[in-house]
């Protein structure tokens, strides 16, 4: 009983991390109509940068925030310097993000080496919290809380601010948004900064659980892909639900069907593709 409950908590924790990964992926997809294949790399590079900041003696959360800031700059730079040159050529943009993902992966290997690096759980959260009669690991609860806070903040930003309204308009109909005077290209840079920043932050935050290793990017990217196909592009709610579904499938699959867990992960995606190609909450088919 306790084991299943723990598995459930782990699933929600992973779901929270995946939401931070896929929210940006989904918004980029919704706005620019491209799957950003460097998104897994943003997650991994953020984690590695966090490792270096920790090595400088910074605290965990300071390292995570600085890594997020660094990733925001890198993400925005990629959009400004490379993708913008290919405006309107979606296929070329996807291929550039693919090429970049290989470069980043190799660069990380060069700088941080091939051995997995496990981050220490931040001080004060290494213990356990008893709720009712059950004992929960404090750090995992913290991840869930932070993910929820960021989700609410993103939601408020999208629904309540002028910027959010512009992003929503761009997701719904980019040419129309352009006509009514929204500078869509500036939104692109912004959304890349935001997506990369949150992904990098999630990378550091996931460090104590997943650790950081070469190939982390390739492990995370397909998950983001599944989530967005499940939830639909440009939909925060879709990304949230998709993340939790994938979180549960991943953890329970590993325990119940370890050999084919990876395939189980993709099954709901295939079903969605066959019967509802625009995703559960999506506005357009990809």
């Amino acid at each position: 009983m306790n084991q299943w409950l723990l598995l459930g908590v782990n699933s929600i924790t992973l779901g929270g991390l995946l939401f931070l990964l896929s929210a940006g992926f989904s918004l980029i997809f919704g706005l620019m109509r491209i799957p950003n294949l460097t998104h897994g790399s943003f997650f991994m590079l953020g984690a590695y940068i966090g490792v270096s900041f920790l090595g400088l003696g910074l605290g965990f959360w300071a390292a995570a925030l600085l890594a997020a800031a660094a990733m925001a700059v890198i993400g925005g730079g990629i959009e400004r310097l490379l993708l913008r040159r290919l405006a309107g050529q979606e296929l070329a943009q996807v291929l550039v993000t693919l090429g970049l993902s290989f470069m980043i992966a190799d660069l990380c290997l060069m700088i941080w080496g091939g051995d997995p690096i496990s981050l220490d759980t931040p001080a004060g959260l290494s213990g356990a919290v008893p709720i009712a009669s059950i004992v929960f690991p404090a750090y995992r609860l913290a991840i869930v809380v932070i993910a929820v806070v960021i989700a609410v903040a993103l939601w408020l930003m999208l629904e309540r601010t002028r910027l959010g309204a512009m992003i929503r308009a761009g997701v719904d109909d980019a040419p129309m948004a352009r006509v009514v005077g929204i500078r869509v290209s500036r939104l692109f840079t912004l959304i890349f900064c935001l997506g990369a920043g949150i992904a990098g932050f999630a990378g550091v935050m996931g460090g104590p659980i997943l650790s950081v290793y070469p190939g982390l990017d390739a492990d995370m990217l397909p998950l983001a892909l599944i989530i967005v196909i499940l939830g639909g592009t440009g939909s925060l709610l879709g990304a949230l639900l998709g993340s939790i579904v994938v979180g549960f499938l991943y953890n329970f699959g590993q325990v119940l069907f370890p050999e084919i867990a990876y395939i189980i992960l993709f099954l709901p995606m295939l079903l969605i593709l066959l019967f509802r190609p625009q995703g559960l909450f999506g506005r357009h088919a990809p």
Partner: peptide, 25 residues
């Protein structure tokens, strides 16, 4: 079922499934 970017994504996902089978099964 799709063309363009959708086709690219689906082939990427199916490719990953096949890779996952080879790696984990």
């Amino acid at each position: 079922r799709s063309a363009g970017i959708g086709f690219l994504m689906i082939t990427l996902a199916i490719g990953q499934i096949l890779w996952g089978m080879a790696y984990r099964w």
